[in-house]
Amino acid sequence: MTTRRGLHVVEPGLLTTVQDLGREGWASFGVPAAGALDEEALRLANRLVGNAEGSAALEITLIGPVVRAAGDLDLAVVGGSFGPAPGRVLRLEDGEVVSLAAAPGTARAIVAIGGGIDVALILGSRSTCLSGRFGGFEGRRLQAGDFLAVFPASASPLEEARVDLPQPGEGGVVLRAFAGPDEAEFDAGARAVFWGTTWKILPQSNRMGLRLGGPSLGHVETASRATEGTTRGTVQVTAHGHPIVLLAERPVTGGYPKIAVVAAVDLGLLTRTPPGSGVRFERISPTEARSLLAAREARLRALIGART
């Protein structure tokens, strides 16, 4: 008898979705990019189990899922600390059940499965677009009883390897960021508050954006602002003066002024940081942000190799 290899969802966890590197090139039709919030974790988790770096995997949030293997499977949890073997290959035998419970102080992780999750490619990606209710597994978060089929594994897992990504500390995180396109609309006082405050990640955060609690940056005129394209990592400020860091599933356009942009190299760390933690911004230049990204790409290339 042949049964399809894959993963049964025994308990879904808080917010578990299928994600890959997202769908780029569709923003002018109003389609959000979606994709893993922590790209670095996705690429490394896939590498551990022998997949191409952009294969579809699970993104798990705050309360991890309980899953049961159908067939022998290799899993890798990378990002936050969930389950018995974060950062390493976890071999599951047919029928084995594993709880990917979160360690304290961790928010999100990627669970890659050898072969990659077999869901339909939609507009070039297997990512779940929650707001549009399409992509991933039936366009929604996973529920108990779902079954995720996986493709046949194409390469051997890296059984000896271990991946450790930066984790939030007790006092929270410091994120490097550069001036946003609308910085000039904020007066010196508001800018000093933005760069000087230890903000707190609010529980109302989601895959569109992380809301930051703290002092108001003052009333911001938004009624007459022109709507324009948004980028990942942009810190926009609401009419009441509260910052929001835009993430992978942000709407493609927005009308709030943008005070800063979080360096792409630090976005993964931010998404590993749970609600209630502190966030402080350290100012760098866009040129420095590009250098940091180039250095990280070189490191990832060395780890991942030429496989894509």
């Binding site: 394209g229 948004t230 590009r290």
Partner: peptide, 17 residues
């Protein structure tokens, strides 16, 4: 070129290195 997003008064151009 990765994504080109015209809007009310601007065009956002997202690229690769």
């Amino acid at each position: 070129l990765v994504d080109i997003v015209p809007a009310a008064r601007t065009v956002l151009v997202v690229g690769s290195p």
